[in-house]
Nucleic acid binder design. Structure first.
Length: 763
DNA sequence: GAGTTTGAAACT
DNA sequence: CAGTTTCAAACTC
C-alpha cells in the first residue's frame, strides 16, 4: 500500500485548525462548582492539565466528544502509546510533552469537560472516602497506602522501586480495608515502574480481576452500599484497582519500547486519531494554577502496553481503534466516568485481540483461565469466532461489564475466510475514498490504516496527519456525531436510564443513529444494529425488522396490531391491552409483570445474546402503549429467545454457544424471532402457559446473575416503576448532556418522570 | 477471488 | 429534506 502523493483535491492541511472551538463548557457553571466542591482532591492539588497535544492541529472537539460521559474514543487516545505521559519515568522521553502550557481554548473546553468528569469521579470516590476517614482508624493498612509521592514535576508517582505485583496486592488488600480512600488515592498515582512482568502473571491477574468481583460485592458495610447507591453497577473501585493492577501487571513491554512509538506508527501500528483524548482524564488546573498534575498511570494510558509483545507482533493485535467505534456511557448515569472507565472496554478489545492471537493460549494455565473469563466479554461475533477457533473453552458467566461486548462492535468482522481479521483488527479495503471518508472503517473508527489494509491511495496515515485531521474536522462540522461511536451503551441495566429509543433494544445499548435496512431485515451484518449486536430502536428506519437483538417498537406495534386484528379473543385481555389501559399501575401490580421486569434486567447480560433476550423482554417495560404485545411476549417465556431454551435445558448453565449455537442468527435452530415475531404464529404461542418465573430460572443458567447486585435489585424492587417508565424522550447519552448532579439524580428524575408520564401515557 | 447485494455516506 | 449516487462491507457463488 503505497502512500499517495498529496491530493490537491484534499483539503489543505491546516495545522492551525483551532477554529470551531466550542464555548467553554461548564466554566464557572454551578455544576462545575458543585462538582469541584465535591472532589476529594483538594483544589490546590488539582493538576495542571497536560496539553500534550496542543502542538497538533487537532480541531476543537465538538461537544459530543466532550461529553462528560465516558468517551472511549478519547480514552483510547488517552491510552495511546506514544503520547504517554511518563511523568514519573524518564525512560520514555515524553515528559516534555506534559509540560506544554497554555492550552488553546478548545482544549480548555475539553479539559473542563474532563474536569467535570474527574469531579464526578472524585465525588463518586469521595463518599466512601469520607466515611472511611473514620473507619480507617486503627487500620492495619500502612499509612502510606495509596499515598503518592510528588516528584519534582509535581507529579504524583509511586516509588519507582515498588514491586508491581506486591504493590497491587497491597493495593487490593488495602482497598478492602480502606475502601475508597485508597481508591481515591490510587487515582492520583502514577503507575509504578513496570519492566519485568510475566505475561502469564498478567493473564492471571486479569482473570482474577473478575474472580474477585464477588468478594467485592460481599464487602460489608457502607462502602459498597455507597458505591451501589452511586449507580455503580459494573465497576466498583476495587475493580478499578484490578483494572489498574491489570494495566500495570500486563505492562510487560519494556518501557523503552515506548520510545519507539514514532517508528511503530510508521510501521503501521495503529495510532488513534483523536489525539485530544489524552486529556480525557486530567484535571484542568486553571482554576488554581497549581501545577500538580494528576495523571493516570502511563500503563493505563498506554493502551497498547496491555498487550504482551508477542501478541502485538502483527502490528495490530492491539487495537488503538478499539474504543473508537464505541462510546459507552459506562457510568454516565452517575457522571462518574473516570479515567478507568476506559479500561474495561479497552480490555474487551484487548481481549479480543488476544483471542485472535493463538499464541496466548498455548501454554499457560493462566491463559486458560483467562480465556474463559473473557469469553463473555466478547461480542457475540467474537465469541462465535473464538469458539469456532477453539480458542476459548469455557463460557462461565462472569457477568462482568456488558459494555465489553459492545466495545468490540465492528471489530469482529472476519473478512474473508482466511481469518485475516480474526485478530479483530480493522483493515479497510478502500479504493476510491482515500480512506478519508466514513466509508473507510479505519478512518471512521478514528485510527490510521495499517499496512495490512488493502486500501489504495490511502491518506489515512500518520504522515498525512494534518490532512486526516482536516478532513475529519470537515466531517465533524457536517455531523458532529460522525465519529461518535455507533453504539451507545448505558451504564445501568435499569430501564430508568434508558432513553425511549432503546425500549426495544437490548437492555443497555442501542445504535446511535439507527439502521435503515430495507432488505436485510436487520438479520445480516449489513445492518449496523445487528452488527453491533444491539436491537433496533425507534430511531431505526428499517423495514421488516427482524433484528434478533430486538426489533424496533414500530415493528412490534405493527405486528401486534396485525395479530390483534386476526386473532382477537385468543388472549386473556388482562394479558394485553387492558393491562395497558389500566395504566402502569395495574400492570405493575401483576406479579407476572413485575417478574418480567426483573427478567429483563436480571438476565445474565454478559451472555452474548442477553441483549436479544433482554430486548425481547424489556421493551415491554417502558411504554404502556406497548404493553399489550410486550406483556404477551413477556408472559410467554416459551417465546423468549431460544437462548432461554438453551439455558433452560442446560443444567450446566452453558451458554448457547457451547451448545453449538454461535451467532445471533444461530440463536437456535428455531430463531426466537420465529417464536416471538412471526405474525401468524403469535396467537398460538402467546397462549403458552409458561410463567415468567420459569423464564427467570431459565435465563440464569449459572445462577450468577440471578441475584442482582444490590443496586439493581434495590432499584428494581424499590422502584418498580423504573421498568415502566413511559416513552419520555431522553437525551441520547452519547450526546453530552449536562451530567447528573448526583449519581442517582437522573434515576430519581426518571422515576418521577415515569410516574408523571404514566398519567400521560394512559390518557 | 470475482461478482453481487446491501446500506451507509456523500452528494445534489 | 428527499432522492440519487458513491462507496465499501457483507455476502454469495
Amino acid at each position: 500500500m503505497d502512500s499517495p502523493e498529496p491530493d490537491p483535491i484534499l483539503p489543505a492541511s491546516s495545522s492551525s485548525s483551532s477554529s470551531a472551538c466550542s464555548p467553554p463548557v461548564g466554566q464557572g457553571s454551578p455544576f462545575l462548582a458543585y462538582a469541584s466542591g465535591l472532589s476529594p482532591i483538594d483544589q490546590a492539588n488539582r493538576g495542571r492539565i497536560d496539553h500534550r497535544f496542543s502542538h497538533t492541529s487537532v480541531p476543537s472537539p465538538l461537544p459530543v466528544f466532550t461529553s462528560p460521559h465516558v468517551d472511549l474514543q478519547r480514552q483510547t487516545g488517552f491510552l495511546e502509546r506514544g503520547e504517554v505521559n511518563m511523568s514519573g519515568s524518564k525512560d520514555h522521553g515524553q515528559g516534555d510533552i506534559q509540560s506544554k502550557p497554555d492550552p488553546d481554548p478548545c482544549f480548555q473546553n475539553e479539559d473542563q469537560s474532563c474536569g467535570q468528569s474527574a469531579a464526578f469521579m472524585d465525588r463518586y470516590l469521595t463518599g466512601p472516602l469520607e466515611m472511611d476517614n473514620t473507619v480507617n482508624n486503627g487500620s492495619t493498612v500502612p499509612d502510606n497506602a495509596g499515598d503518592a509521592i510528588v516528584n519534582n514535576n509535581n507529579v504524583r508517582v509511586l516509588p519507582q522501586d515498588q514491586n508491581v505485583e506486591n504493590y497491587f496486592n497491597f493495593v487490593e488488600s488495602a482497598a478492602y480495608q480502606e475502601g475508597s480512600r485508597f481508591v481515591h488515592n490510587l487515582m492520583e498515582l502514577t503507575a509504578p515502574k513496570v519492566d519485568d512482568v510475566d505475561p502469564g502473571m498478567f493473564l492471571d491477574n486479569l482473570s482474577q480481576v473478575q474472580h474477585r468481583q464477588q468478594p467485592v460485592a460481599q464487602v460489608p458495610g457502607d462502602w459498597h452500599n455507597n458505591l451501589n447507591s452511586g449507580c455503580q453497577s459494573f465497576l466498583d473501585p476495587l475493580q478499578r484497582i484490578e483494572a489498574y493492577k491489570f494495566s500495570a501487571g500486563c505492562s510487560s513491554l519494556p518501557s523503552n519500547r515506548l520510545a519507539k512509538d514514532a517508528e511503530q506508527n510508521q510501521r503501521g501500528i495503529r495510532r488513534h486519531l483523536q489525539f485530544e483524548a489524552s486529556r480525557a482524564c486530567e484535571y484542568n488546573s486553571n482554576e488554581t494554577g497549581d501545577t500538580t498534575t494528576l495523571i493516570l498511570p502511563a500503563e493505563i494510558r498506554d493502551f497498547k502496553s496491555f498487550v504482551p509483545p508477542h501478541i502485538e507482533g502483527e502490528s495490530c493485535a492491539w487495537q488503538a481503534d478499539s474504543c473508537s467505534q464505541t462510546e459507552f456511557d459506562v457510568r454516565s448515569d452517575c457522571g462518574s466516568h473516570d479515567a478507568l472507565a476506559c479500561i474495561p472496554s479497552g480490555l474487551g478489545l484487548h481481549f479480543h485481540s488476544m483471542v485472535g492471537s493463538g499464541s496466548l493460549y498455548s501454554d499457560s494455565s493462566a491463559s486458560n483461565k483467562f480465556t474463559g473469563e473473557i469469553y463473555n466479554q466478547l461480542t457475540p461475533f467474537n465469541q462465535q469466532e473464538a469458539s469456532a477457533e477453539g480458542k476459548l473453552s469455557t463460557s462461565s458467566d462472569i457477568g462482568m461489564v456488558e459494555e465489553l461486548n459492545m466495545v468490540n462492535y465492528g471489530k469482529s468482522r472476519k473478512r474473508g475466510k482466511d481469518g485475516s481479521e480474526g485478530d479483530g483488527c480493522k483493515r479497510c479495503n478502500c479504493k476510491r475514498s482515500k480512506c478519508l471518508k466514513l466509508y473507510c472503517e479505519c478512518f471512521a473508527s478514528g485510527v490510521y490504516c495499517l499496512d495490512s489494509c488493502s486500501c489504495e491511495n490511502c491518506f489515512n496515515k500518520p504522515e498525512y496527519e494534518d490532512t486526516v485531521l482536516d478532513v475529519r474536522q470537515q466531517i465533524e462540522a457536517r455531523n458532529p456525531l460522525a465519529f461518535a461511536p455507533k453504539v451507545v451503551k448505558h451504564a445501568s441495566n435499569s430501564p430508568a436510564i434508558m432513553e425511549e429509543g432503546s425500549r426495544a433494544t437490548p437492555s443497555s445499548a442501542r445504535h446511535k443513529r439507527g439502521c435503515n435496512c430495507k432488505k436485510s431485515k436487520c438479520l445480516k451484518k449489513y445492518c449496523e444494529c445487528y452488527q453491533a449486536g444491539v436491537g433496533c430502536s425507534d430511531g431505526c428506519r428499517c423495514e421488516g425488522c427482524n433484528n434478533p437483538f430486538g426489533v424496533k417498537l414500530e415493528t412490534v406495534y405493527r405486528r401486534a396490531g396485525k395479530w390483534k386484528n386476526s386473532s382477537q379473543g385468543q388472549l386473556d385481555p388482562s394479558e394485553t391491552e387492558d393491562a395497558c389501559t389500566n395504566s402502569g399501575t395495574a400492570s405493575q401490580s401483576s406479579p407476572k409483570w413485575r417478574e418480567m421486569i426483573d427478567i429483563s434486567h436480571l438476565t445474565p447480560l454478559s451472555h452474548p445474546y442477553a441483549g436479544a433476550i433482554a430486548g425481547s423482554a424489556s421493551f415491554s417495560t417502558r411504554d404502556c402503549s406497548q404493553l399489550p404485545l410486550e406483556q404477551t411476549y413477556q408472559g410467554s417465556s416459551l417465546h423468549l429467545p431460544s437462548g432461554y431454551h438453551h439455558w433452560d435445558n442446560s443444567p450446566s448453565g452453558l451458554t448457547p454457544e457451547v451448545h453449538g449455537s454461535n451467532a445471533p442468527p444461530q440463536l437456535s435452530p428455531d430463531s426466537f424471532l420465529q417464536n416471538i415475531l412471526e405474525e401468524d404464529d403469535m396467537p398460538e404461542k402467546l397462549t403458552s402457559s409458561s410463567t415468567p418465573t420459569k423464564a427467570v430460572t431459565a435465563s440464569s443458567p449459572n445462577k450468577k446473575r440471578v441475584s442482582p447486585p444490590n443496586v439493581q435489585s434495590g432499584q428494581l424492587r424499590s422502584s418498580p416503576s423504573l421498568g415502566l417508565r413511559s416513552g419520555r424522550k431522553l437525551i441520547l447519552q452519547a450526546v453530552p448532556s449536562f451530567p447528573s448532579l448526583t449519581p442517582c439524580s437522573k434515576l430519581k428524575h426518571d422515576v418521577h418522570q415515569t410516574d408523571d408520564d404514566h398519567g400521560d401515557s394512559t390518557s
